[in-house]
Design a protein around this nucleic acid. Structure first.
Length: 1006
RNA sequence: GGGCUUGUGGCUCAGUUUGGCUAGAGCGUUCGGCUGAUAACCGAAAGAUCGAGAGUUCGAAUCUCUCCAGGCCCA
């Protein structure tokens, strides 16, 4: 007899689960059959509904790491689930290709001291070419990683944010904003490097914190209309006194009036002592304490009006040079009163904007003061620090001047100290839309409360959006300004540009700098020449316009609002926000462009540290997937914890539980197929219906069939609400516990036989396994698509060719109520609670499970008794006991003769006494087990029949005990004859020494 | 510095919304057992002052406050 493993010949299904090999074969299969495309095409033609999806475009400036993989796996999980539920989803890739990170990469490649020098050297054309090369290099890495991961996202339909057709549609958002007066000029404070003469992004600012030395100046401003009252203030940037506009206090904190000599000083109460100590003032007296908010509106004498005439003009504004209350003021350091220079600090700036103060930003290129700064004009801002100190001293307003070392942002490139400067920028006045924004956001499903609250809290701030950037590689801001009359137009299409151009150097121009800057338009007002504003757009505007920009008009109608989007939690302020704002600008409706948004937690390293280049703990996806299974990685990423929690990723954990679950699932298929093929099981004729009609379904089958309905229900429900971890743990429990640990042992004995008269029973088991395993393959597919596809192709399609050509086109399982049986599940739960008690009692008395015993007494309530009675044959077989008795209370028994175990309300008593017959049978099972082990070791297949089995050096008493069971044993170990020898020397054979209860014996198999 | 979030045996996670029997599970470890699908599994043992401290309460992992540490976002 030969092995009954037909599918082996296909080279796909191997005896051993080797996920890497298997996944390679599945990848090749998908590739060869264009499965991804086919699935999409079929669903496009034939679907329950079309669902919109737009890809949150990864920036192509780095290699995808395991954190990205988490998001991609969740996206793919959702896609496959929806496809199997008969939806078409526009699951098309997209890439963010512009902006600072790309420019930095190119600067590095080309070697640059600073941007100005570089552009002067290579020119913008070459710079832009290099940017394109750079992104395409990374694009390849991303597509490779996606392929390795098994992402069924359509790469051919990908959008790239730098493509002209994308930019042109992105401009439509700006056009809508322009028409609604939601786009315009304003000021914003940005970090600026005076050496590189460029502004820096927040990300760049974060790169360059260093310890530097600055002046530490304590000074006073006189309260207006008083003789001797002063606000006490501290700063490390004396030059900002030049642009000073307000003083800030914290509204709910205590401030004190302190008498010092003949003056009254005002500062935070808790800072009085430390400041007096610092100034070495011993005689002082707190005369009054008041809340910060009571100081609001008090005017102070701005001391440098004579030097900065412009400040004198500003002083006429009712709020300029007065006290305001702001929550950001810190009363635990310095004096608890801060001076606010809106042109030189973001908090200051926002405080001024909120109150609609006029802007005073007297800076030119290189952070040099302009004429507006009076006597300070012509100086680099920080150079005036000492001048300001001097002037305050002259006016008796200086209390102390020292040096301080502190952490301060410097330019990561030139190491120069950064300054914050208000610059002219373009804004989307999204603050005007705030109510719509918040309302729209409230309608979205976020699945979990914490990210929702966080997102809403952020949105409620309702800040205007500064969309202009002073860079090269980006979508240009399509605003042209007349050189003559300053008239502005926004031109949002290529066609219109060509029509309006007076200077069009090249008809095939690209919508990028520098080409677009060469286009001059004719002013419709005065006929003058119009020049484009030099800005490019914030990259968040690029990606935020994807719902309109990546689709056609028709697709936009169909797919937006999209159904389900998911990104990491850092996108709260990023893409989730820009999508929302732009969509509201575009449609005018209080509607988000997504119905559901899942914010995922971050992936950290095994020790919970952030992954960073400097720590060297970044795990690249493709690199990892060369050695690790994609299925197992996917399973791990989805299953380890809730998607909103941050995850400590430890590659070593992949081979633990996730591997165990998937391998068990795989081996269950081995087990099923091995047996089913042997009996020529045909799922199309041997259906569950057939088994019912033939009356060959037994209680374990009905139980597992009922259980799987519940699994389908719960799994689907959990998956729909993004509790992937709970869904998978249900699946895991089913595979490992319900099927492998419980069901298989129950039906194993039915499969041992190969008699024709029990064939139908075996076929019923196969029908059950086929049904259950196939459901599991489908449930597994969104998480582990390689394994599911492999099993579908190798087993299910092999057995039933009418099935879909890929597992992805199979229908998602629906629970079948007809197969649910709550009462039976309850009975089995009782059985499974009682059995371990028997095992436990046996263990205590060293009674091996393969030794049959005479009797067990179950002491429990009636419903436990009834359940066991109903399942009695099964109970006895699994307990390996000949008979069971039932009792209501624990009888008084001799513990020498009875082994007991108790849990909750159930006690079992096991009869320890074994007569010769029981002992003989137990011995036979012991020996059989050892023979089986040897057979396996010698390479026999389970179904091979061996000529003879020889046993030697058994004790004489054991030989006697064994005799009645020789025939049974011959059947069990599949041999024609068992020979028993006193001594191994008697017979020449390949003897193997073994041990039975610490005594030597010899076995040979021929 | 601010907002949000996490902290539970060696490891990974439940449990916290709504306070309540002895804080659960899986992995790992040790001992024993089972096993012709399985690196699965079964029985038992060791192992947690539930981040620390204080408070509320008859009772706190759970509620409140403070602090410490990690993470995200923002300054």
């Amino acid at each position: 007899m030969t092995a009954k493993f037909k599918a082996n010949s296909k080279l796909w299904l191997t005896q051993k689960y080797s996920p890497l090999e298997l996944e390679n074969k599945v990848r090749a299969f998908w590739d060869e059959n264009q499965t991804l495309k086919k699935v999409a095409q079929i669903r496009q033609k034939n679907n329950k509904k079309q669902l919109g999806y737009v890809e949150g475009p990864p920036t192509l400036n780095g290699i995808p790491h395991i954190g990205h993989a988490r998001g991609r796996v969740i996206k793919d999980f959702h896609y496959r689930l929806k496809v199997m539920q008969n939806y078409y989803v526009s699951f098309w890739a997209g890439w963010d290709t512009q902006g600072l990170p790309v420019e930095l990469e190119v600067e590095k490649t080309l070697g640059a001291k600073n941007k100005k020098e570089l552009i002067a050297r290579v020119g913008e054309e070459l710079f832009v070419e290099e940017c394109k090369k750079s992104i395409m290099k990374y694009h390849k890495h991303w597509v490779d990683a996606d392929t390795m991961l098994g992402m069924f996202i359509d790469q051919d339909k990908a959008y790239f944010t730098h493509q002209d057709r994308y930019i042109e549609r992105e401009w439509q958002y700006l056009k809508r904003a322009w028409e609604q007066n939601l786009l315009g000029e304003g000021h914003y404070v940005v970090a600026y490097c005076p050496h590189c003469q460029t502004s820096l992004s927040n990300a760049e600012v974060g790169l360059g914190y260093q310890e530097v030395e600055d002046p530490s100046m304590l000074f006073k401003f006189k309260v207006d209309q008083t003789e001797n009252e002063y606000f006490i203030v501290w700063t490390t940037m004396p030059f900002t006194i030049i642009t000073d506009m307000m003083l800030g206090v914290k509204p709910e904190e205590d401030y004190a009036k302190v008498k010092v000599k003949d003056e009254v000083w005002i500062l935070a109460k808790e800072r009085v002592e430390p400041i007096m100590e610092e100034l070495e003032i011993e005689n002082f007296q707190v005369t009054e304490v008041m809340k910060g908010k009571t100081l609001v509106g008090k005017k102070y004498d701005y001391p440098l009006k004579d030097l900065v005439p412009k400040q004198g003009e500003l002083d006429k504004h009712p709020l300029v040079h007065t006290v305001v209350a702001e929550e950001f003021v810190d009363v635990t350091t310095a004096t608890g009163i801060v001076h606010l220079a809106p042109a030189n600090g973001e908090d200051d700036f926002l405080a001024s904007q909120k109150r609609e103060l006029p802007m005073f930003a007297p800076f030119g290129d290189g952070a040099i003061f302009t004429e507006d700064a009076g006597v300070f004009a012509g100086n680099f801002v920080r150079k005036t620090d000492s001048m300001v100190v001097e002037e305050l001293e002259k006016r008796n307003l200086l209390l102390s001047i020292k040096k301080i070392k502190h952490e301060y942002p410097t330019c990561w490139r030139s190491k120069h100290k950064l300054v914050w400067l208000a610059r002219r920028e373009y804004f989307l006045w999204t603050n005007k839309l705030n109510k719509k924004v918040v309302d729209a956001a409230l309608d979205v499903e976020y699945f979990f409360d914490s990210p929702k609250n966080r997102f809403l809290a952020f949105l409620k701030e309702g800040k205007p959006w500064c969309v202009s950037r002073d860079r090269i590689w980006g979508s240009p801001l399509p605003v042209w300004v007349c050189d003559e009359c300053n008239h502005k137009v926004l031109v949002a299409s290529r066609k219109e540009l060509i029509e309006k151009a007076i200077d069009l150097p090249d008809k095939d121009f690209e919508l990028h700098k520098p080409w677009i800057d060469r286009i001059k338009l004719k002013c419709e007002k005065c006929g003058g020449k119009m020049t484009r504003e030099h800005f490019v757009l914030d990259v968040w505007h690029d990606s935020g316009s994807s719902p309109y920009a990546r689709f056609s008009d028709e697709e936009f109608e169909k797919f937006v609002p999209t159904d389900f989007l998911t990104e990491a939690v850092d996108q709260t302020r990023g893409w989730a926000n820009s999508l929302l704002l732009e969509h509201i600008i575009m449609t005018g409706k209080a509607e988000a462009p997504y119905k559901q948004f899942l914010f995922q937690g971050f992936v950290l390293d095994a020790k919970g540290r952030k992954m960073s280049k400097s720590l060297g703990n970044v795990l690249e996806t493709s690199q990892m997937l060369k050695e690790r299974s994609a299925d197992i990685s996917r399973y791990y990423l989805l299953g380890k914890c809730s998607p909103i929690d941050s995850m400590n990723f430890d590659p070593n954990e992949l081979k633990k539980r996730p591997y165990q679950v998937l391998s068990t699932f795989y081996y269950l298929h081995n087990f099923f197929l091995q047996n089913a093929e042997y009996d020529n099981f045909d799922p199309t004729t041997h259906t569950l219906q057939w088994a019912k009609t033939e009356n060959v379904l037994e209680s374990p089958d009905c139980w597992v069939l009922s259980k799987v309905q519940r699994l389908v229900k719960v799994f689907t429900q959990k998956a729909e609400v993004c509790e992937f971890n709970s869904a998978l743990s249900q699946l895991e429990d089913f595979v490992v516990n319900i099927l492998s640990r419980e069901y298989v042992p129950m039906i194993r004995k039915d499969l041992w036989s190969d008699e024709p008269e029990t064939l139908n029973r075996r076929l019923a088991v196969y029908a059950t396994l086929y049904y259950v395993l196939r459901k599991l393959v489908l449930l597994f597919n969104p998480a582990t698509p390689f394994l599911s596809e492999a099993l579908h192709q190798m087993i299910y399609k092999e057995l039933d060719n009418s099935l879909a050509e890929t597992v992805n086109l199979e229908d998602w399982p629906e629970p079948d109520q007809a197969l649910e049986d709550d009462a039976l599940e309850e009975e089995f739960a009782i059985l499974q609670k009682t059995l371990p008690l028997v095992y436990s009692a046996r263990q205590d008395s060293q009674l091996k499970r393969r030794w049959p015993l005479a009797k067990v007494v179950v002491v429990a309530s009636t419903n436990v008794h009834n359940a066991i009675k109903k399942l009695e044959p099964l109970f006895l077989e699994l307990a390996n006991i000949k008979c069971v008795e039932y009792a209501d209370s624990v009888p008084d028994v001799d513990s020498e003769l009875w082994a007991t175990a108790t849990e909750d309300e159930i006690t079992v008593l096991v009869d320890k006494v074994r007569d010769d017959s029981l002992e003989g049978e137990g011995l036979m099972r012991d020996l059989a087990r050892r023979v089986q082990a040897l057979r396996k070791e010698l390479g026999f297949s389970p179904t091979d029949i061996v000529d003879a089995v020889h046993l030697a050096e058994l004790e004489p008493r054991n030989v006697e005990l064994l005799k009645p069971y020789i025939a049974e044993m011959e059947g069990l170990v599949r041999t024609k004859k068992i020979h028993i020898h006193d001594n191994a020397d008697e017979f020449k054979a390949d003897w193997h020494q073994d041990k039975l209860d610490k005594k030597k014996l010899y076995i040979a198999v021929v």
